[in-house]
Amino acid sequence: MLPIRQLMLSGLLAGSLVAGPASAQTLEFEGAWSPEAPPTAPVMAGYVEITNNGDKDVAITAARCDDFNKVEIHDMVERDGMMRMIQQERLTIPAGETVKLEKGGLHLMLMKPRRAIKQGETLDITFETAAGESNKVPFEVKTRSEQEMHHDNHQRHH
């Protein structure tokens, strides 16, 4: 539980530093990135940590990106010996908590890219909430190696 709490705290802290308390968004998106995919891959993934700074649960009901035909939120679960992707019609971020979209678990599935997408680019992905709010989040396209190196350095600095 401790790492999650720490992440939550650092999320809150970063939020107040960047946005200022007056204009703080209910949802805070951190570390958004998308692994570059092989050129023939018709799908990509998106990973991000979403923190709910508010005192009410927030449900994300849709995600979209101009560079893809469709964006879905999926969960990867292992059931009956198989890895299964289960589409999530809504993703609830409980009040005061952080939900991680990460490798081997919840993730964004970016389907049918409308153009070739390369390392170094940014994908703007918009999340819609049940309350009608929308959050536009820049996802950095990186290779998995690049992300691992960044992650390792990040760990070392703490």
């Binding site: 891959a41 990509m44 998995r144």
Partner: peptide, 17 residues
Amino acid sequence: FTNCPDICPATLHTMKS
């Protein structure tokens, strides 16, 4: 399968490592 966004590319990347 190549339409797999998460575990297949992640595992192939892991094998490269």
